[in-house]
Design a protein around this nucleic acid. Sequence first.
DNA 1: CTGATACTGAAGCATTCGCTTCAGTATTGA
DNA 2: TCAATACTGAAGCGAATGCTTCAGTATCAG
Lengths: 119, 119
Amino acid sequence: MLQYQETPLDLVFQALADQTRREMVERLSRGPASVSELAAPFAMSLSAVGQHLKVLEASGLVRSEKHGRVRTCRLEAEAMRRAQQWISLRRANWEQRLDRLGEYLDADDSNETTTGSQP
Amino acid sequence: MLQYQETPLDLVFQALADQTRREMVERLSRGPASVSELAAPFAMSLSAVGQHLKVLEASGLVRSEKHGRVRTCRLEAEAMRRAQQWISLRRANWEQRLDRLGEYLDADDSNETTTGSQP
DNA sequence: CTGATACTGAAGCATTCGCTTCAGTATTGA
DNA sequence: TCAATACTGAAGCGAATGCTTCAGTATCAG
């Protein structure tokens, strides 16, 4: 196992940036659904939902397969994980920095912290 | 402590959806920076970077304050946390569901799993 | 005071986005 | 076979995005 997925993060966050698509993800987190089922809660055309679905699939967040005339969609945990991890890593970096700064200031507090970079 | 922040998630993911802005966040995760410092790596006008910064601030991901003629920007960990958590929660939901399904199938495997909703 | 620095704002412009409608194409149930 | 179902695709359209340039406004260094 080692799949050739790896959609750019741009597409993942782009996909999550829309309220409708986030609600679709929310729905899919509770289990697979057909396109019509996915569309049901929304006051928009099936076509529009189909377009949102395409965005979600392009991002790798959702996978789908067609059986007969019904397309069944399911969430792809791996793409979720990558997005989560990107944020997590930057936050960790920043918070760790704040911690180190805190310790530093505890030891000696006659300092400025304007640019954060040491020339 | 209990701030009246709470920017809608839409704006956070929207902000993260752009490569330039993600690189700005990346930069800020390594420490505070001025607008010009933030703009330095990019082949675009300072004005454009200023506009990106405005998006990041509106999302709550970045906070900034002006001292003299220099605006210093820093990351806001809390907004990062909320975005991360949204993804995390949906993923957890979905993966837990997969686990339960796995156990169920281990016990009895004469079943279909097409729609995932029991009518 | 004077010129450089560091933004800041407004206008414009091409592209993308989120829809719509309308017209298809497969499937399926009766 | 025949109509209903479940999408699917193309065209169009108004609004939002991501820039640009140009013209400011403070602030600071000499």
